[in-house]
Structure formats: structure tokens, C-alpha cells
Amino acid sequence: MGLRRLSYWQFPFVLLLLPLLLAACVASGPGATGSVSTGADPHAVEPTHAATEALQALPPLEPVTLASGEKLRVVASTQIIADVVRQVGGEYIELATLLPAGADPHSYTATPADLRTLNQAHVIFINGLGLEEAMDPVLENLEGDAVLVPVNVGVTPRSLAEEAGTGEEHGHEHDHEHGQGVDPHTWFDVRNVMIWVQNIQETLSRLDPAHAPAYQEAAERYRQELEALDREIRTAVESIPPEKRLLVTDHETLGYLAAAYGFKLVGAVLPSFSTMAAPSARELAALQEQIRSVGATAIFVGTNVNPALAEQVARDLNIAVVPIYTEELSAPDGPAPTYVAMMRYNIQAIVEALR
């Protein structure tokens, strides 16, 4: 049996009753008391494709029958998602992560072990918004009965056109080739991860209602930690003079950070949200001119990205290359083993480079 799909085209008669069904969901459905709707939505984006608009609703979720001592089998596509899921699910779930340390989600290739893990899962949490585009063929052809849940349901995505520093000449040639011009790096706004927590809590609680109180308690505790992190980041950014809050990156990763915390995006070495893009000579020249004109002092490069091209640009301009964690966490004994630690590490590195 394949993945459970959020599709009304299999049920044509539902379209005739849609207004009544929606009214009933609003009045008495689970979305009536929370900030994130969990009812089926005829406008919801198919989660296994590179979404180009907001993901509207969680898929239908039914309790899983678990044997005595059996835990809910959960898979997360990335390390960052896995850490947030772990904060909510704790000891009550069996958690696996697809992407190992140093892996690039934009160029993922499934191993036989990955396929076994996915086919045995009860639920698979993905980012959505095109981040797992390379995983789509695998996720669309699984033999198991897992439900696929994008954690970004309810998050408003940013587009390449919204990235303030890209301009007309830098950053638009690859919009339709990589990620459809939608920025999947939503976790750089901590408030978006608070929405993830809500989605994860509701998903785990519906699939495993016996442990719903524990999931709710853990989610609330973690939300408080995220609220403190959000305040901490805002305070740290205030220490940077406004005219120096300039971000240059290896690829378009920090749009949400800039919008949420008051930075200006100057540009990116790779003019795309995907690391699979390649800049033209014209784009690199335009970026270098933009960096010179605004006086940016650093290029921030993800630890999972080859820094060679960014280092070349930095040498030409005599500016620094600063490594940060963008799409992965560090090893457990490293500086960024959790999402919260990753954000603290990145903000400290950014502040020190710009202040």
C-alpha cells in the first residue's frame, strides 16, 4: 500500500458537499482550537512535490495500532527536523533520520537501508517547499503505509523575488530549475519552528493518542525554549550597527533570518535556493560589484557546501569566509548538535563577523 495521499479527486462526490464539510470542520474540527488546521483541505499542496505556495493542511491522520511495547516508528528527512521531532516525541517514538551529517538534501540518493526504514515507518516528517526535491521519486513510490507530513504546514514561504538583495541581474536565471523560486529554509525564523512543533505534536498525538498528554507537555516546554531563543537572537542582532547587518551567502539560505531579525540580503554566490545551481560569470561579477558597493565584510558558507567558489570571491574582495550551519547539525560533540545550539552558534558567528 502506498503513502496516504491528501487528495479529493478520488472522491468526486465530496466536491458537491464541500461547503457543508468545510463549515463543519470550522465549527467542530480539530483546527477550531489550534493555530494549525489538521483537516483535509482541497487546496492543500501535494506534499511530495516541490511546493510553490503555502502548505495548507496536515494530511488525514488516524491512530496506529501498536503492539505491546511497540513504539511509533518515525522518520525525519533532515537532522534539523529530526531534532525538533525528538524534542516532542522523546522516549515514546523510534526516530530515524535520512540525511547523515554532511549530506546535502538537494542531491540526496536513497540507499537500500533508507528504503527499508521508510517502508517500515508509520510517519515521515519532511520539510516540503522543494527541499526534498531529490527525494521525491523515493517518497512517491514507497511500499509501506507511512503518512507523509510536511512540518511547514501553516508557514508562509518566501520567494526568490522577496529576497531584498538579489536584484534584477543576480539570482533569477535558475528560479524554475531549482526549487521553483520558493525558499525552503524556513527554520531560520524561530517562529516558524514553533509552527513545526504544533504540527509535530498534533501528528504524533493523532497517530499515538495514548501518549498525547506527554507529546503536549513536551511541545509546550520546547515552545518556551524557542520563545527564549527568539528573544536572545533579537538582542544579539541589536549589537550590530544597522548599516553593518549585511548578509552574503553561498546560496540563498538566510532569507527568513533576514526578514525576521533585521538583516539586509546582499546576494549569494550560487543564485538559487539549491546548491545544485551554478552561477554565470555575469552573476558573479554583479555580486562582487554589489558587495563592494555596500561594504559587506563576510560571506557566510554552509558547512555542507563546497566553499571553493565563495573563497575565490572572498579573496578577490579581501573579505572573510565564515562557516555556519545551514542545512545540517554538527556531531553530538560539536558546537551545533541541536537546532537551538545551531541557531546560537550561527548568530554568534554572524555577530562577530559583522559587528
Rank of each mutant, 00 (worst) to 15 (best):
A82D: 02
L257W: 10
D175H: 08
A212N: 04
T65S: 12
V123K: 00
Q79E: 07
Y339I: 04
L6K: 08
I291V: 08
L148M: 12
A349H: 10
H185F: 05
T249R: 00
A27N: 13
V14S: 04
L115Y: 08
I233L: 04
L247T: 05
Q79C: 01
H176E: 14
H174V: 07
L160F: 15
L95M: 11
G295A: 04
Q224N: 11
A110T: 13
L265F: 10
V147R: 07
E289V: 02
G89N: 03
S68C: 06
G69T: 13
A210S: 11
H170C: 10
A286K: 12
P157I: 12
D250F: 10
Q224M: 09
A23Q: 06
L21C: 03
L309K: 15
A349L: 11
P213S: 01
V64F: 00
Y339V: 00
H122A: 00
I319S: 07
D145W: 07
L317S: 08
A298Q: 09
V138I: 15
D250T: 15
E217W: 06
P337H: 15
D316Q: 14
G102H: 09
G102I: 06
R5K: 13
P112R: 02
I126T: 01
P59K: 04
R282W: 06
A40Q: 08
T249Q: 04
H251T: 08
E227L: 15
D83A: 01
V305D: 03
H174F: 13
P42A: 02
S159E: 04
M343D: 11
L309Y: 12
H211W: 06
L229G: 03
P241T: 12
E168W: 13
T235P: 05
